[in-house]
Simulated scan of single mutants.
Amino acid sequence: MKAAAIVGARPQFVKAGMLSRALRRHMEEIIIHTGQHYDANMSAVFFEQLSLPHPEYELQAGSDTHARQTARMLMELEEILVKEKPDFVLVFGDTNSTLAGSLAAAKLHIPIAHVEAGLRSYNRRMPEEINRVVTDHLSTVLFCPTGTAVGNLKKEGITRHTYMVGDVMCDAVLAYKDVALRQSSVLERLGLVPGSYYLATIHRAENTDNPEHMRAILRALHQLDRPVLVPLHPRTKKCLEKFGLLPLLDGEKLHVMEPLRYLDMLACISQASVVLTDSGGVQKEAYMLHIPCVTMRSETEWVETVAHGGNVLAGADSQRIVAAVEQFKQPVSFRNLFGDGKTADQIAEILMTISPDL
């Protein structure tokens, strides 16, 4: 058997890094890197730190409008899949790389396995929501991280070859959290001690493309009572430059830095007092590491984290963001929502078992 794994963004490298090991014990695998994330700290470093095999193909799609970026990937992926003739295509999450991989495979009648299927924010203004809905309806096998995700698919009539397996990112967090703490020196370089700071990441288009949202979020960060680490996404920096908002990053409270390497990011999340983010992946990583999270969006696809008290939705509202952080001065009881660290093995075993029927 041959699998083609299509990746292009930070969370996908993490998931593929864990799954690739399990798959390669049973089958041939090729990795296609679309180049959607091209910054070294958001791309190449993941292959190094997670020992992810070097991609057989690198498309260098880069940054562009959704249509242009997806179209460029789609054209090149079609050529590769025709040449390689995989038995199935693996796609991860909800990025443009996921959509392009799913469309290319579906048009060529190649079975699609979607890892992290069934998520819904029910906000169709989010490009990620469009990507995951389309991908789920094109997929042959759907690997869901939670029971809620399975239920979302059932509401849409998708029940065949749907499996609740847990979250592959949980495999990575459990495997690397201690390594990260031993190896990372970020806090030492900044003169910070564990629990004495907040960590904030901002990259969603609903925030970065809206100057009022960005003003409100940055105003809130300046109002917090502790230093704030801000690993700055390249796209966020471009938007701040475009709107003339870069000066809002100045101030002794904010420690603005380049995107962190995976192990550094894991260490910084695990030692933060509270995480503030609009990222789906960082919401999960915070919960898995038992760190309270304030989500700077009006909805989340990870509804379980909110239901169990580890995550608060604050939108892009300064007062709500600050109040949500204050709320977490009270301890939070975290539950095991995302699996036991063996999701990758489960996925590999299921694919080996059902592949003759695909």
Rank of each mutant, 00 (worst) to 15 (best):
L77Y: 08
I112K: 12
N96A: 04
H114W: 08
P259L: 07
A113D: 09
P231T: 07
M18P: 09
A216G: 10
F338Y: 15
A71R: 14
E304T: 08
T305W: 09
A105G: 12
I130F: 11
A316E: 09
L142S: 02
K253T: 15
K83W: 04
E48R: 15
A348R: 14
G310Y: 08
D250T: 14
W302S: 05
V322G: 05
L181Q: 04
I31Q: 04
D64G: 11
T34V: 00
R182F: 01
G35W: 03
T300Q: 06
P127W: 01
T162R: 13
L248F: 07
G93M: 04
L50E: 06
Q330G: 07
I347M: 02
D225Q: 09
A272Q: 05
D340V: 03
L153D: 10
Y287D: 03
L77H: 05
K154G: 06
G8S: 04
L260V: 08
S184R: 02
V115P: 01
L218Y: 03
M42F: 07
P86M: 01
I32Q: 00
A3W: 14
P331D: 04
C144M: 11
H213A: 15
E28P: 05
T162W: 05
M126Q: 12
S270P: 08
E116S: 06
P127V: 02
V133E: 07
G195E: 13
D39V: 03
S121C: 13
R10Q: 13
A205C: 05
Q69P: 05
V165M: 06
N96R: 03
H109L: 10
G191V: 04
P127R: 00
N131T: 13
V7D: 03
K85Y: 02
R160I: 14
L108M: 03
I112G: 10
Q327M: 09
H308N: 15
N123E: 14
P53N: 02
T305G: 11
P356N: 01
R21N: 12
M42V: 07
E188V: 11
G151T: 11
V294I: 02
H308S: 15
T305R: 09
A16Q: 14
Y197R: 08
E58A: 13
K342Y: 09
T65E: 00
D317L: 06
L232V: 06
N131H: 08
H137A: 10
D345C: 12
E28V: 06
R120L: 03
A117G: 01
R219I: 06
H161W: 15
V134S: 04
L50S: 10
Y38C: 11
L187S: 05
K83Q: 13
S63G: 11
E29W: 12
E188D: 14
T159N: 10
V256Q: 08
R189W: 09
L232E: 05
V133I: 15
G147I: 10
G8C: 06
R204H: 00
V282R: 01
R132I: 01
D357T: 15
G101A: 12
V306E: 11
A200K: 01
I354P: 12
V150R: 13
H33T: 00
L50T: 04
L313F: 01
S63V: 10
H137Y: 04
F334P: 10
L266N: 07
L119E: 05
R120V: 02
L52C: 08
T98I: 00
N207Y: 03
V150Q: 11
F243T: 01
